[in-house]
Simulated scan of single mutants.
Amino acid sequence: MEIDDLRSFLVIARYANLRNAAAELYQSPSALSKAIKRLETALNTPLFDRIGKSLRLNSQGEHLRERAEQLVALADQTQAEFRGERQHLHCRIVGPAILQWRYGATFSELLQKHYPGSGIAFVSQFEDAALGALSKGAADFALVTQAAINTSLPLGLEAVAIGNLTMHLAAGTRHPLVKTMSDAKPTMRKFKSNTAQILNYDFACPDRSLFCGIDRGTRSDGWRDDQLPRKIRFWLDDLQLLMSLVRSGQALAYLPDFALNDPSLVRLHVTDCDYECVEQCWLVWRPSVASGWQNKLVSLFTLD
């Protein structure tokens, strides 16, 4: 029984499809099929039920998946201890797109600095799904917010705080409101306004939370609609489209603080309703089966 075959087995189990698994592993479906046959021969038991073009783990396969995760993690840790920076990794990070955008580049830079030539796969999933994928071994790390930690951190997972993300009310430099303030002197690209002015204009708003999907519902971007109902003209579920509508001057919207580095955007400080949505962000992993490189990246990430 080879470690590489166990690695292939884990990817196939995650996708339940040879072709999709082959695309991630840069192998042919036939090569992966042979790997599964070698495992089944070595263990003298079938591991999958074949249903059309899909593969579903049977009870023996589920049992092997838990063992395979432990064996692969141990192999990775041993390799890391002896090979150090020469080790080439394939890191999988899951989490909401907004958190991938905020922390993905930092994670990638650390990985390339300490493990040159390694690959990284970013998969956008809402928080509950991300934690589920991590718990099942389908990811190495998950990015989530405090709300997910409070309500649904599965047994065996641990989290470290990595910073805060604040949603600010933003407008494009081409927006009519900003043009009326052209004589004002903004402080650090921040214009002062008030609710009477703000409520004259259209908003763009995600139709579900950018972090957890439907759990927090609509209108959970940062504005107090319960107190000051606004005109929401655009409903959407894509962060880049939200940015585009704001840049073009068509709508106001709440955007993450780091997005306001864009020179075509300005922050609006509403003096009589200065409410902001602040999210504490966490990096989650499974210490019990973590490889040495994972533990190292966690320590480096929290120090960065």
Rank of each mutant, 00 (worst) to 15 (best):
P186D: 05
T173Y: 01
L169M: 06
L39C: 08
E66N: 12
D221C: 09
V160T: 11
G156N: 01
E127G: 10
A138V: 02
W285S: 11
P229G: 03
L252T: 03
F203L: 04
L18W: 06
A161N: 05
C205M: 09
K37E: 03
H175A: 04
D304T: 10
G61L: 04
K231Q: 03
M1G: 08
L165K: 05
S108K: 03
L110W: 01
S264N: 11
A184M: 05
K37W: 09
Q77Y: 15
A22S: 11
P29L: 05
C277A: 10
F126Y: 15
R102G: 07
A138R: 09
G95V: 07
A259E: 02
L169K: 08
L131H: 11
H90M: 15
N200W: 00
S264L: 15
R67A: 08
A13F: 06
A13N: 03
D207W: 10
E69C: 09
A142D: 11
V270S: 13
M188G: 11
L153H: 06
G163L: 10
L210P: 13
E279M: 13
R14I: 11
W285M: 09
S288C: 11
L177S: 02
R224V: 07
D274E: 11
L300V: 05
T173L: 06
Q87F: 12
T180L: 03
K190C: 04
E127M: 09
E24P: 10
M1V: 06
F234E: 02
T218F: 08
Q70A: 14
P176K: 02
D49T: 09
T145Q: 05
S124Q: 14
T271E: 07
A35C: 01
K190D: 00
V246P: 08
Q27S: 07
L143V: 13
N200I: 02
G217I: 14
R233V: 13
A171K: 00
Q125T: 10
A129R: 15
A259M: 15
I232T: 07
S264V: 14
T151S: 12
N261E: 09
L177T: 08
R56P: 01
Q112A: 01
A97H: 11
C281Y: 08
G52I: 15
Q27P: 04
I3M: 09
N200D: 02
A251H: 12
A80V: 14
H168S: 03
D5L: 14
F126S: 14
D274C: 11
S264P: 03
H63F: 07
K190N: 06
A80Q: 13
T302N: 00
A80H: 12
P229A: 06
R83C: 13
T41E: 00
R19D: 02
L134D: 02
S220V: 06
Q197R: 04
Y115K: 08
C277N: 05
G213Q: 04
A147S: 14
R230P: 03
H168V: 12
T151I: 14
S124P: 15
Q60G: 01
T151C: 02
K136Y: 07
S182D: 01
L74K: 15
G222W: 07
I149Y: 04
N194V: 10
Q60R: 03
